[in-house]
Design a protein around this nucleic acid. Structure first.
Lengths: 140, 140
DNA sequence: CTACATCCTCTAGCGACTAGAGGTGCAAGA
DNA sequence: TCTTGCACCTCTAGTCGCTAGAGGATGTAG
């Protein structure tokens, strides 16, 4: 077996070197074997696992959710109901976040459009911030 | 003058009590006078300031941006160009975040729809996570 | 053999709070 | 007046998911 250094594992998976060590430290990655000089020696499966983690992080899953997803992946005979539930929960979160950000966007646009670029005492940005009652959406 | 306790200031501004103390500790709020028994005694202007901060935080402005906005508010004769720039920058951030979340949403929907609710080895959720190449959008 | 990149561990820091310990102040009811 | 009990005080440490830096060891190319 060829030895994969942490640097190679990092560049191949797209996870940074300190982050790889961090994932090992929190038990998301099984501690790899070491070389004579105490350097980590990864295997191809570790790189897949790192790529999995990275992708899940990019999709906004939390570390604990990823931990669950990884244990599911490790035992392919289990029902995928948990994986499904985690993904669905994440979808709901994302949808809520989008709605909330759309409301924010509308608010910010009003602020920016209304700004006459004059002095602060006529500035709509400051004014709206100071008075929530001027918002069109009350629930952000 | 009537004395406003931290609890009243908190409930009237919608900022939590420990958060009010936190804002004072980082200098976002001028330290209020104290009662004989060393308890904070706020004034109405402090409540407006807290409400301003809260509103700005809800709109996603960072503390340092809020610090700038507050100094602008304190001096109404200044140009509001800075306030305008801060709000515009925040608007751009929000727009980017929305685009990114829309891509995520699409990805998550594909995952969830494709899940046959069977066993993990056929689960599309796990499969897509393991292989970024299956994504429709490469740039999340 | 000498550079120099990469690796190692460990601690501390980021932002914006939040939680808890351990103690004091104050107002209202018995 | 006393007591109950909530609200207040300070201080430290924890949250999440890394990231940065110190100070030293290892590995490789010329």
């Amino acid at each position: 077996m060829k030895k994969i250094t942490i640097g190679e594992a990092a560049s191949q998976s797209g996870v940074k070197v300190p982050t790889v060590r961090y994932y090992e430290s929190i038990g998301l990655l099984v501690a790899p074997s070491r070389s004579e000089g105490n350097q980590r020696s990864f295997e191809p499966a570790d790189i897949s696992r790192l790529a999995f983690i990275r992708h899940a992080r990019e999709l906004g899953f939390e570390i604990e959710a990823i931990r669950t997803l990884l244990t599911l992946q490790d035992d392919p005979h289990q029902s995928c109901a948990s994986a499904d539930a985690i993904a669905k929960a994440r979808l709901v979160e994302v949808e809520q976040r989008i709605r909330s950000l759309m409301a924010l966007k509308a608010e910010l646009e009003t602020m920016v459009e209304g700004c006459g670029h004059g002095r602060v005492d006529q500035c709509r940005v400051i004014e709206v911030l100071a008075d929530h009652g001027q918002c069109r959406h009350s629930h952000h």
